[in-house]
Design a protein around this nucleic acid. Structure first.
Lengths: 173, 173
DNA sequence: AAGAGTTGTGATTGGTCAATCAATAATATA
DNA sequence: TATATTATTGATTGACCAATCACAACTCTT
């Protein structure tokens, strides 16, 4: 019981990847598990061997927050203090460009009230925030919390700018 | 044909007010027109004399953006240049507190792909942005666009902080 | 090759919901 | 009061969908 074969692990990631795309394109509530199944090239009932629709969303969110966190880790490890902020901004812009669906999914989840979904969002965002604060502190900034708040705020505006296709919202620094 | 009686105008606003609450509480896609009708104390078919579900969302968004714009107009008219930014921030925090549902609805609409909805969002946000830029310019700030962008970014982070119930995201200025 | 476990699907269902229509109540007008 | 107009609803429908179940195909192991 509960044994995880190589195949089933692959199926899980197939399904989650499909779900991220479908949920972001169609919208979580309008998207059907049949559409996710089709994108993953399996049958609709088989999705339920692994996930419920909601647990699929939670899984997708976890993946997408991990991507952001990893990207930031990379920048933090590689950047001189004075280039840190610039590097983080750039990394986030890259994610928005290369993984637009995941970010659109996070934006949808911001207003979903089911508790497991809110928990996934809170944990993901808080983990990112904590990591950035620490990086700013270790880079020697006295106002690390303030800088992090500004950085996250800018990220949220980037999201909206991308989602609504309003590039004029952003101003070059 | 198309005559607008006093009664029908009242009904329209009743329905839109009900829709804002229900859509924000339940979520636009999960909310039913029957729930909106119940909140407005009318029958479900009667909603369709005035709105389709989507046009109801568009109307609700227009109302909510107008509220933000008016609140800012008031602050701009009443504030000395050096108090302008602080006043705008305060006004927005007040709206988030007093009209939370409308803001939650705007956040949902950020990721809705139907073109009429996107248009309503773009127009609302762009109108607010343009008004704030003008106010900063008239207050004598050379970097009005930059200040506006920062201000909007902060607003977006406020939204997320409210929606996810994560007050720690915000740092006192 | 027989059995056991694993991987997968077809068919179905119970529930839900936006939208429509035919009809009735209420109100104004003549 | 009769008639037209406006306001409102009950009943229904056609489509859709998450979730379940019973069954089939495949892949080991011995």
């Amino acid at each position: 019981m509960g044994r995880e074969t190589t195949t089933s692990v692959n199926r899980r990631t197939d399904i989650v990847s499909a779900a991220i795309e479908v949920f972001a394109e169609i919208g979580y509530y309008r998207a059907t598990t049949a559409q996710v199944a089709e994108r993953a090239a399996i049958s609709q009932p088989y999705v339920y061997r692994f996930f419920t629709k909601e647990s699929l969303l939670v899984e997708a969110l976890t993946v997408s927050w991990q991507r952001v966190l990893r990207a930031f880790e990379g920048v933090i490890a590689a950047s001189a203090p004075e280039k840190l902020e610039e590097g983080l901004i750039r990394a986030y812009e890259d994610i928005i460009a290369s993984h637009r669906s995941e970010i659109l999914l996070q934006m949808q989840a911001q207003t979903i009230r089911e508790e497991p979904v809110r928990d996934a969002m809170r944990q993901g965002l808080e983990a990112v925030r904590a990591r950035v604060v620490l990086a700013f502190e270790q880079a020697g900034f006295a106002d690390a919390e303030q800088r992090t708040s500004d950085f996250l705020a800018r990220g949220m505006l980037c999201n909206v700018s991308m989602a609504l296709d309003l590039p004029g919202l952003l101003v070059k620094r």
